[in-house]
Every structure is written in C-alpha cells, then in structure tokens.
C-alpha cells in the first residue's frame, strides 16, 4: 500500500477542481433543460407547476418520460412505475459511486444522492475512488451537483417562457420525443441494449390495447428480460 498522490487540500480546492472538470460536460445540460421546460408548457402546465415539477423531480428523463402519461390522465401508479423505471439506472450508479463517500456524514450523503446525475457520476467516479481527503471529495462532487442544479432550473425557466410565445402549429411537444430519442440512441450501442430497446418499443406498440396502459409496463419488463437474455447468449457465444 502506498499513500495517494493527493495531499489534504480541503473543500475549496475540491470545489475549484471539480468545477473546472465539470464545466465542459455541463454545457450538454442546456438543450435538455430548454426542451424539458418547453415540454412542460406544451403539456399544459402553468409556469408555477412547471417549475414545481422541475425543482421537486429534478430528473430530465423521468420528467420527459412521464409528461405524456400525465397529460393523458394515466393512472398514478403507471406514472410512478414509469418514473421509477427511468430512474433505475441511478440505483446502479449509486451502488457504484457509494464507496467514494467514505468518511462523509449522512446529511451530506442525502444531498449528494439528490444531486446524482449521469454527468456528475461520469466526471466524479474516478476521483472519488482515488482521493483520500473526504472534504476534497465532497467539494469536488457537490459543485458538479450544485452547478447542474443551477443550469437545470435556469434553462428550464427560459424554456417554459419560450414555449409560451411559440404557436401551437409548431408542434413543440415533439421536441420531447426527440429528446428521448437522443438519450436512447447512445444507450442502444451494444447489441443487448438494442434488443432491450426493440422489444420494449415493439412490445409497447403491440400491447397498446391493454387496459390502464398496462402494455407500457409489460413492455418495459419484456425489454429488460430480452436485453438480459441477449447478454447471456452473447457471452455464451464468445466464451
């Protein structure tokens, strides 16, 4: 065992270095926030309702994914099940990054959990595993979350008001569908992921006649099973 290269540098140093590392990544949040803001207005939310959702939920994919269901008066459990399914990846991210919070108190951990996004996970993971000083790690991580939060709220607010002045015939609500496509495309790069997406998407079309929109949840479960099966099959083939 050798000591890490990093000395004790404290919270402020962590904040500074985290911000520099995260800034370029965070630019990608701007179109998302604008689109989510516009989509919430297109779904008929007032600016107060839209900002309420944006602050309480703070999850672009879950917001975009549940908006059509909310606008469609879908049952509450279906909205929640869909939101949970779209957030399940964070269970895995959370399990992965958890060792990075060694030596940090429970209150901070809740805040850090709330701040966990794809971008923060990607930028912080290695550093959180390598650095010893808990205060440096906390600063490095928290600034990525706080900066994401600020960008997310600011640009969603701009999107909310931008959508209000755009005519209905521009079909802005379709931007939400494009946003989901943009999230889906890089996910579906591996063969098993593509299988999960095709079965999930095809299943939802085939099962659309099921009552209470049960077809969506059934299709998601089928997609997960198909992706998992495809992964096993692929491993057997290469083994």
């Amino acid at each position: 065992m050798h000591a890490t290269d990093f000395e004790r540098r404290g919270f402020t140093a962590g904040v500074r270095e985290g911000f520099i590392a995260f800034l370029p990544v965070s630019v990608g949040l701007i179109p998302w926030a604008l689109v989510v803001g516009m989509a919430m207005t297109s779904a008929g939310f007032s600016p107060l309702q839209a900002m309420g959702m944006n602050i309480i939920v703070f999850a672009g994919t879950a917001q975009l994914g549940t908006l059509p269901l909310i606008a469609d008066n879908a049952p509450l459990w279906l909205i929640l099940a869909t939101g949970l399914a779209l957030n399940l990846r964070f269970l895995i991210f959370s399990a992965g990054i958890a060792p990075g919070f060694r030596g940090i108190g429970t209150g901070w951990r809740w805040l850090c959990g709330h701040f966990l996004t794809d971008g923060s996970f990607a930028v912080c993971y290695d550093k959180l595993m390598q650095v010893d000083d808990p205060r440096w790690r906390l600063g490095y991580y928290v600034i990525t979350g706080a900066w994401s939060w600020l960008l997310w709220q600011t640009f969603a607010l701009i999107g909310i008001f931008a959508a209000g002045i755009v005519p209905k015939s521009w079909s802005l609500e379709f931007m939400a569908t494009i946003a989901l496509i943009v999230l889906l495309v890089p996910m579906a790069k591996s063969r098993p992921m593509l299988v999960a997406a095709i079965v999930g998407g095809g299943g939802a079309v085939m099962l659309r006649g099921m009552p209470l929109r049960l077809g969506v949840v059934t299709a998601i479960c089928l997609g997960i099973a198909a992706g998992f099966a495809a992964e096993h099959w692929q491993e057997k083939k290469t083994a």
Binding site: A85, L86, I181, V199
Partner: peptide
C-alpha cells in the same frame, strides 16, 4: 444489477416508439 441496466433503454423505447 446487470438486469436493471436494461431498464432505461426498454422504458425510453416503450414511450418513444408508440408515439
């Protein structure tokens, strides 16, 4: 954990494709 990795792709497609 491995099975849950497929949840986001399956859920997004289940919303986008019918739409």
């Amino acid at each position: 954990q491995r099975a849950l990795r497929y949840a986001p792709a399956a859920a997004l497609a289940a919303i986008v494709v019918p739409d």
